[in-house]
Design a protein around this nucleic acid. Structure first.
Lengths: 208, 208
DNA sequence: CAAAAACTTGACCATTTGATAAAAAATGAC
DNA sequence: GTCATTTTTTATCAAATGGTCAAGTTTTTG
């Protein structure tokens, strides 16, 4: 009789798979809105109709839930970025990337807010990841952008700040959705946002 | 013998003024990094070298500390926005605004993160403020931008998204400072950031 | 300088919260 | 269907946390 799922890293049963998915889904929302310390196991359990004790059968502790959810989030976050190809036309490549990030932001705003929260806390769990894996990846894409600039396909903008600008604007519509809706009196859709961002940024980066 | 400062809303003594300032300063940092629920009174007290009990002499409860800090933050946040004048040249007016916001973001990143956190939680305390005061203010500035567009001084961009883009990019350097530094391997200064943002956005909004 | 007011401290309390242990219930293999 | 395994519940804890109270200390004021 195992004390918890976490103690036997073998294959998961159907119930285990289902419940762990339920839990991470609920945890994502709670962590995203309340932050790591503000989130409680009980609240997560409530949100997936499970007792706190039962939840702790599937995850050994709060920290492990958080790590799991954060890892999942990071994965989905990086994928579209990796796709940026040096062979493509810059406007198309960046336009696609922006469109994908906007779609993701509207589809899973909690993931974006969870990530933001981790950074706000000083990135205690992923500081190393940022300095190594993410940095390498950004360096790589910055080189691609620089190459586009050198071949006259892009105006001479700083690649890093261009990337930050894309991240900042796309994520803004997830992280500040409440403010956007309050100020506009309505919630803009994917197309409208993508249009606005690509229109501005791609024009700003277009060669003279 | 008054039970607390909050109970007598008359003028504050020297010690009261000093200690309340100490507390709000410390509270800003703690709330900004830990979020509302994650922040503890004890931690705030520690950070200003005061006992929890003593702190509670100056503020009746945690909520009141938060409200005070948030109100202070909102004030400083709006000021530069209000200054945007229809009479000025758009590039200069927007450029100035961006420069001021960047300076503020680097100078007081905690304020920016506190605000972000409030929004992440769904803006429980300021939802009404967003829908009324802020919306009115943004509507007003959007009208100014539209006027610039109509008189051919600006490309036909959506005023609201232009404003969001400025907010998103400038605040990004406060809220995601840890990530920016990790990825760039250094912390960009005010000038560099202002240059990058204005360069891109103002060019993107420049009439053809 | 003495009384009053303002400030600080330490002991205390009720809840909440992360977590454990063991019993009960449900599920699955044969 | 029965037995072993997995899942869920119930009871319980210790620590953390928001907050109170009353007594002590310092500062201000007449």
């Amino acid at each position: 009789m195992p004390r918890s799922v976490a103690e036997k890293p073998e294959k998961l049963s159907r119930i285990q798979t289902a419940n762990r998915a339920l839990i991470t889904e609920a945890a994502l929302e709670v962590f995203a809105t309340e932050g790591y310390r503000g989130a409680t196991i009980e609240r997560i359990a409530e949100r997936c109709g499970m007792s706190k004790t039962n939840l702790l059968y599937y995850f050994p502790n709060k920290d492990e839930i958080y790590r799991t959810v954060l890892a999942q989030t990071l994965e989905g976050w990086l994928d579209p970025f990796i796709e940026i190809s040096p062979d493509a036309d810059p406007e198309e490549a960046l336009g696609n990337y922006i469109a994908e990030k906007v779609a993701l932001s509207l589809d899973r705003p909690e993931a974006s807010r969870l990530f933001a929260n981790e950074i706000h806390r000083g990135a205690p769990l992923i500081h190393d990841f940022l300095k190594t894996e993410l940095k390498d990846l950004v360096d790589e894409k910055a080189a691609v952008i620089r190459q586009w600039i050198d071949s006259g396909k892009l105006a001479p903008v700083d690649p890093y700040h261009l990337i930050f600008m894309i991240w900042a604007t796309t994520q803004h519509y997830a992280d500040f959705a409440v403010q956007v809706e309050a100020v506009m009196g309505r919630a803009p859709d994917t197309d409208e946002i993508t249009q606005a961002i690509t229109g501005m940024i791609l024009k700003g980066a277009r060669p003279a």
